[in-house]
């Protein structure tokens, strides 16, 4: 599958990415020379033991953190060349984020939160598309509510909608279902998968949950800052087996 799309420009890409925290004896290498491509319209899961560098990998590709060496690209844009303002603009337009918790601005309504990146850019966005997204995540009747009036699952759905609203090149989600019960978790995952299948959205998701990862087209396994396994069309069982072999 990956061979057939070789000619297509990856949505995001890491080339020889190294990320070291601290220096000298205390230095921790969170990413050790990692290269990876994320293809458009694909749902990729990243798994690995705690401290293996999953979040670091995501942050570095998403422009939230800088690499110690190597290059990260969103589409054709090399992140290392960008100053804070351009980088911020890139995050606003080309990247979507879904965090584990505290995804929403408490003073804004659900709808305002959804269009926040667009509004920050002074854009109205594509209203039809946004309506479509809102309907897809099933939030039509919750639009005027503030985050404190929404359940955890609803909040995460708002976060998904926000990530989709600006039609970014790629969406990064760090344990988006980590704080949810299994029902709301699978709901959120289903929406993410639909976004990929129906809207052609690219999504990269970090997760500890094998069944969550089984929603993806592809699973990357990280250990000690290395990609140790790259699995296509995963199933929960295969994922669990691989995890065991890594030793987590």
């Amino acid at each position: 599958m990956s061979t057939s799309q070789e000619s297509v420009l990856p949505a995001a890409r890491l080339v020889d990415g190294v990320k070291t925290y601290g220096s000298g004896d205390a230095a921790v290498t969170a990413l050790d020379n990692v290269s990876v491509d994320f293809q458009p319209a694909r749902f990729t899961a990243i798994m690995g033991p705690s401290g293996s560098g999953k979040s670091t990998l995501m942050h570095c590709i998403a422009g939230l953190d800088s690499l110690t060496s190597g290059d990260a690209y969103i589409g054709e844009t090399r992140l290392g060349d960008l100053k804070d303002r351009k980088l911020t603009e890139l995050r606003r337009t080309e990247v979507g984020f879904i965090f584990q918790a505290f995804n929403l601005v408490p003073t804004l309504t659900a709808e305002e939160n959804i269009v926040l990146p667009l509004m920050l850019g002074g854009r109205k966005g594509d209203r039809e598309w946004i309506d479509n997204v809102i309907d897809t995540v099933g939030l039509r009747d919750r639009l005027t509510h503030r985050p404190s009036e929404l359940s955890g699952g609803q909040q995460q759905r708002v976060a998904v909608a926000r990530a989709l609203a600006s039609r970014p090149t790629i969406i990064f989600a760090d344990e988006p279902t980590g704080n949810l019960d299994s029902n709301s978790g699978s709901e959120v995952l289903a929406f993410m998968r639909r976004a990929v299948d129906e809207f052609g959205q690219s999504i990269v998701m970090v997760t500890h949950d094998a069944s969550a990862a089984s929603n993806a087209h592809r699973v990357l396994f990280l250990n000690d800052g290395h990609i140790v396994h790259d699995m296509s069309d995963p199933t929960a069982d295969r994922i669990l087996d691989t995890m065991k072999s890594i030793g987590s």
Partner: peptide
């Protein structure tokens, strides 16, 4: 702080 981090992450510029 956390909220500010979120705003910055989803694209709020320093100036904003």
């Amino acid at each position: 702080t956390r909220e500010i981090g979120l705003l910055r992450a989803v694209g709020m510029t320093r100036r904003q």
